[in-house]
C-alpha cells in the first residue's frame, strides 16, 4: 500500500511517541477538533445553503465570501492542525482505517470543488449574487460542497468504528 513507509516512519518519531503517551493530548486535540469543525462546517454550510438558494437569501453571496471567509478559515485551520496531530499521534491506528482514507479523499474533492467554483462561477458573482434563484453552476457547487463536507463529518466520526467496514477493505488490508 502507498504511504505505509511514511506512516511507519512517523510512528517512530519522538514527537509522535510523546504525543501518543500523553494522557491529555488526545482528549484536548479531539475536543478542539470537534469545536472548530462545528464552527467551520456550520459557516461553510451557510455559504452552501445560500449558493443552493434555500437559505440566507437576505445576504448577498459576496458578503458571505468576503466577510465570513476569514472566520471560516480560522475554524478550518484549527481543524486541520488538530486533525493532523490526532493522526500524527497514532499513525498506525489511522493508517489501516477505511474511514480515515475516505475522509481524506473527500477533503481533496471538497478542495477541488471550492477551487473550481472560485476560478469559474464566483468570478461573475456580482451579476447574480442578489438573485433568489442562483445560477445552476452555483447551485451545483453548493450541493457538492454540502454533500462532501457532510461526508467528511460522517466519515470522521466513523473512524472510531474501524470494525464496521466493507469486507473488501478487510481483505485488502490483510494483504
Amino acid at each position: 500500500m502507498p504511504f505505509q513507509a511514511l506512516f511507519e516512519w512517523m510512528n517512530e518519531l519522538p514527537s509522535s511517541i510523546a504525543l501518543r503517551q500523553s494522557l491529555n493530548a488526545y482528549p484536548i486535540l479531539l475536543t478542539l477538533h470537534v469545536v472548530s469543525m462545528a464552527a467551520f462546517g456550520g459557516l461553510i454550510a451557510l455559504l452552501d445553503l445560500r449558493l443552493v438558494g434555500i437559505g440566507y437569501q437576505s445576504v448577498p453571496v459576496s458578503k458571505i465570501t468576503e466577510r465570513v471567509f476569514p472566520w471560516m478559515f480560522v475554524g478550518f485551520f484549527v481543524s486541520i492542525v488538530t486533525g493532523f496531530l490526532l493522526a500524527y499521534s497514532k499513525p498506525m491506528t489511522y493508517f489501516p482505517n477505511f474511514y480515515f482514507w475516505v475522509k481524506n479523499g473527500l477533503m481533496i474533492l471538497a478542495g477541488l470543488n471550492a477551487g473550481l467554483f472560485h476560478l469559474t462561477t464566483e468570478q461573475s458573482v456580482k451579476e447574480w449574487e442578489n438573485d433568489l434563484v442562483t445560477p445552476p453552476a452555483a447551485r451545483f457547487a453548493g450541493i457538492a460542497s454540502l454533500v462532501m463536507w457532510a461526508g467528511i463529518i460522517i466519515t470522521g466520526r466513523m473512524i472510531a468504528y474501524s470494525a464496521l467496514v466493507p469486507q473488501w477493505w478487510v481483505d485488502f488490508t490483510a494483504n
Binding site: 469543525m37 462545528a38 464552527a39 462546517g41 456550520g42 459557516l43 461553510i44 454550510a45 451557510l46 465570513v68 463536507w149 457532510a150 463529518i153 460522517i154 470522521g156 466520526r157
Partner: peptide, 13 residues
C-alpha cells in the same frame, strides 16, 4: 454531528 455543525453555524453567524 452533522446537525451540530448546522446548528452551530446558525448560532455563530
Amino acid at each position: 454531528l452533522v446537525a451540530i455543525a448546522t446548528f452551530v453555524g446558525s448560532v455563530l453567524i
